[in-house]
Computed example of a mutant assay.
Amino acid sequence: MHADAFIHPAAHVAPGASIGAGCRIGPGCVVSAEAVLEAGVELVAHVVIDGRAFIGAGAKIFPFATIGLPPQDLKYKGEPTGVSIGARTQVREHATIHRGSTGGDGMTRIGADCLVMCVAHVGHDCRIGDGVILVNNVMLAGHVEIGDFAVIQGGAAIQQFVRIGRMAMVAGMSGVERNVLPYGRAKGYRAKLHGLNTIAMRRRLGLSKDQVMVVARAVHDLYRGGRPEDHVEAIAAAHPGNALVSEILAFARNRGRHGLCPFGRAAEEEEGGEAA
């Protein structure tokens, strides 16, 4: 333990835990012997860090959150798996983030600068990129992958092995059973694609309206008749050198277990529509 770390007398930090400079561990916290807390980590109060857990520098974990408890997987038999939380990520009250399983690579990963809001659940073997926001009560089943700067709004449920692309947005209370393209907007009880997250594309990437519309037309063409996967090469030939279209098509080629989220019937009417 680093000399200038603060551990409240009512906290329990197991011998062997690595506690970095400037860490603050509040009352009622429990930290396992295999945990690693980098410099400046704060556990506010009543936080449980279990097993092989790595918490990146400057991360802040709020009361009653649990990180690294065993996966909710009946196949799990106590194997030495773990969880990694990136630098400056915030995990809010009552959120649960489970360690990985042997059905994956053994690690659950959350990137840097993420915000995991109250009562969100991140299942075993999930891979979450940098800058991702999981709003209150989001539910991620095992092996879900979420790209950088995606936003999953409150109460959304993501089925196991589903992939959410970079900078996509999933509307609140949606049930996502198939993969959502990068920059896509998905919503609905059984979620469908409803255009692109155009505000994020403009604000974060600095794209003009015309540049966004080129990508929107490519996505509409991808879904126009038959399976989207059948149109990938034609769309690639029509948009040579467009990095965003290439990113979307690379995602579409890797259909995984579930294929792509279907296009919503109202999405044609929303072309050019905006999302926060």
Rank of each mutant, 00 (worst) to 15 (best):
T102W: 10
G129N: 03
Q153H: 07
A45N: 06
G123A: 10
R52Y: 10
V138W: 00
G123R: 00
I55M: 09
N137Y: 11
I152N: 03
I55E: 05
Y76C: 08
V36W: 09
T102R: 08
C29Q: 00
G103H: 11
A65N: 00
L74H: 03
V135W: 07
G86L: 08
K77M: 14
V132G: 05
K75P: 12
S32E: 00
C126E: 12
G154R: 03
V47E: 01
I110V: 15
R99L: 05
A59Q: 10
F64C: 08
H94I: 01
G103R: 13
I85H: 06
I25D: 03
A57W: 11
G78A: 02
G40D: 13
D125I: 00
A45S: 10
A59S: 14
I25T: 07
G86N: 13
E42A: 15
D130N: 11
G103P: 02
G86W: 12
A39F: 08
A17G: 00
N136Q: 10
S18R: 12
I61N: 00
M107K: 10
D113P: 10
I55G: 07
G104W: 03
G123I: 02
C29L: 00
L74V: 14
S32P: 11
P63L: 05
G154H: 07
R52A: 09
D130E: 09
V122A: 04
A35F: 06
A59V: 09
R88F: 15
V83R: 09
V13G: 00
P15S: 05
P15D: 08
I49V: 15
G78D: 03
G58W: 14
G22W: 04
V144R: 03
A112G: 13
H121F: 00
F64A: 01
V36G: 08
G78N: 05
G111F: 14
H124V: 03
Q159G: 04
L69S: 11
